[in-house]
C-alpha cells in the first residue's frame, strides 16, 4: 500500500535497465519500500541496478520481460504478484528510439520498434490495470514523450508510437477513476541517457534525475500528467498549433 506521501512498498519497473525508470525508482525508495522488481529483456543486464538498490533488507529481483511478446504480459504480472503481493507502483519505462534513417530503409524494423513501444505498452498496461482493479489500488507511471505531442520528421516512427501510448494512457486513467488506481503520464523532453547517447541535444534538454524528481512530485500531488521540464507544457502548447509549413522548418533535428 502507498502511504500518505505516495511512498510505495512494492515497485515494478517495466524496462528494468531504463535510466529514467531506475532514477524514478531511486527517488521513490523510502523506509516503507520492501520489494522492487526490475523486469527487462535480459535480467542479467540489471545486475548492477539490483545490487545498488538492495539495502535495508529490501528484496530486489530482476525478471525476464519482453515487451514485444504481448502474450507473456499477463503471466508476468501474476508472477510478480506471487513474489511481492499487491503491486503498489508500476513504472512503464521500456522503449526503443531507433534511427529514422534506418526505418526509412527497413519498414519491418520500424514495425518492430512500434510493437515494443506501443503494442507492448497496451498489453502490459492492460494487464497491470486488471491487477490494480482487483487489488483496489495502485499507480501506473507511463513514460510518454514530447516526441508524441507533435511528431517531427527526424523521429516520427518513435514519435507516433509515443503518441499512441500517451493516448492509451489517458484513456486508461479515465477508465480507472473510482477504482482506487491512477495513471500518471510523464512527458519528458530530450533526456541525456543511454537511449540518446550520441545524439545532439535540443533546447530544454534534461536528465533522468530531473525527470524522476518531477515524477515523484506528480505522484505526490496526484497529478494526471507531468512535463519535464515543466516549461515544455507551454512550449508544446504553441508547437502543437503551428502550421505544418512553419513547424517542419524549425531547427528541431
Amino acid at each position: 500500500m502507498h502511504n500518505a506521501f505516495a511512498q510505495p512498498q512494492t515497485i515494478l519497473l517495466l524496462g528494468g535497465t531504463s535510466d529514467i525508470g531506475l532514477a524514478i525508482v531511486r527517488a521513490l525508495v523510502s523506509p516503507t519500500c520492501h520489494d522492487i522488481v526490475l523486469a527487462c529483456r535480459n535480467p542479467s543486464a540489471a545486475d548492477e541496478a539490483v545490487a545498488s538498490l538492495r539495502a535495508d533488507g529490501r528484496n530486489v529481483t530482476a525478471v525476464r520481460f519482453d515487451a514485444s511478446q504481448p502474450a507473456t504480459h499477463a503471466a508476468l504480472i501474476t508472477d510478480v504478484v506471487s513474489r511481492v503481493g499487491d503491486i503498489d507502483l508500476v513504472i512503464m519505462a521500456f522503449g526503443v528510439l531507433g534511427d529514422q534513417g534506418n526505418f526509412d530503409q527497413d519498414p519491418v524494423a520500424a514495425a518492430e520498434a512500434v510493437t515494443v513501444n506501443y503494442v507492448g505498452g497496451v498489453s502490459s498496461g492492460l494487464a497491470v490495470a486488471a491487477q490494480f482493479r482487483k487489488q483496489g489500488h495502485g499507480r501506473l507511471v507511463v513514460l510518454s514523450s514530447v516526441a508524441g505531442e507533435r511528431t517531427r520528421k527526424s523521429n516520427f516512427v518513435y514519435g507516433s508510437s509515443k503518441a499512441g501510448i500517451d493516448a492509451f494512457a489517458q484513456g486508461l486513467g479515465d477508465s480507472l477513476v473510482g477504482t482506487g488506481a491512477t495513471v500518471l503520464i510523464v512527458r519528458p523532453g530530450f533526456v541525456h541517457s543511454a537511449m540518446t547517447a550520441g545524439l545532439a541535444a535540443v533546447p530544454f534538454s534534461t536528465t533522468p534525475e530531473a525527470v524522476a524528481e518531477a515524477t515523484v512530485r506528480g505522484l505526490h500531488a496526484a497529478k494526471r500528467t507531468v512535463w519535464a521540464p515543466g516549461i515544455l507544457r507551454y512550449v508544446f502548447m504553441i508547437l502543437r498549433h503551428l502550421p505544418g509549413a512553419v513547424f517542419r522548418r524549425l531547427p528541431l533535428g
Binding site: M1, G178, G180
Partner: peptide, 17 residues
Amino acid sequence: TPPTRLTGWGRATASGA
C-alpha cells in the same frame, strides 16, 4: 457493487472498495 474511492479523514490515502 462497482468500487467506490474511499479515503481516511486526512484525505491523503485512497483506495477503492
